[in-house]
Amino acid sequence: MHQNVTITRRTLLAATAMITLAVAGPAVAQDKPLAGKVVGVTVIGTDHHWDLMAYQGQIDQLEELGAEVIALDAGRNDQTQISQIQTLIAQQPDAIIEQLGNLDVLNPWLERITQAGIPLFTVDTATPFAINNTTSNNYNIGAELALQIVQDMGGAGKVAVFNGFYSVPVCKIRYDQLMYVLQSFPSIEVIQPELRDVIPNTVQQAYSDATDILTQYGPDSGLKAFWACWDVPMMGATQAIEAAGRTDVRTYGVDGSPEYVEMVANPDSQAGAVAAQQPYEIGKQAALNVAAYLTGQPVPPFSFVPAVLINKENAGELAADFLPKQ
């Protein structure tokens, strides 16, 4: 098990190095390479810290590069986002960046963007219709977090999984990676049926679902972990564990929302670890890719922006950058 972790860490380091090179690759020479260009940005919602940061990163960078930005926030409504994509197509912008949402809903419309001859870039959304997808390396994030759980659990016990967003590509990858890692540890059991995280009322719902699970699986049950593909539900789960007075169960999430990082950094909290991403940098990188493409430079099919696994041991050293701004 330990060996496994080390190998993955080493691979991650190597990958990070390569990524940094890839990210640094399409540097843009001119001062305002996007002057006179119109770029559309469509995002499913900005109610979550990650979403807002990535969205803002795109807009700030695009404007800095001289582009006119049409930025549309669908307020977490699929119908609205489809309408907004249609409206963007009607505008015939020089490029469109799409961020998150349900891939099954989006794909036919992303195809329409490509068919209309508009270059499509995505943030955190793997689709065959995009020229480039800028994201964290979710394969690594998923595996790293899974291995952290295995390590903290001592290779045995029960884990409760929130799986409400399997149709969101990054969640699918992280979930699949978790299950792939757990295959090697047959003493770890995933509680069935799985839980469903929701939007909105994420924290409240997770609190109530986690409370039910904690009641059902008492201190001797072997329940040791809650997992979700992001960290907002884990805030609710952590509070539920602490309210139940349990110290045998920890939570694990992804994204690096400041409030959750704060919990992980707090030695008294039951928040175990978080894969903290750099959403603002991801947004900026997507904008740089648009600039590179529109000035005729080669753009790779995906750009990875490094993420950091913050756990109880390394939080003192790594959490500072991700904590709430005072």
Partner: peptide, 16 residues
Amino acid sequence: LIVSRLSSSTPGTGLM
């Protein structure tokens, strides 16, 4: 028509 447009049934129709 809604399912056709979104290639799915999604939560949130009630908001209309």
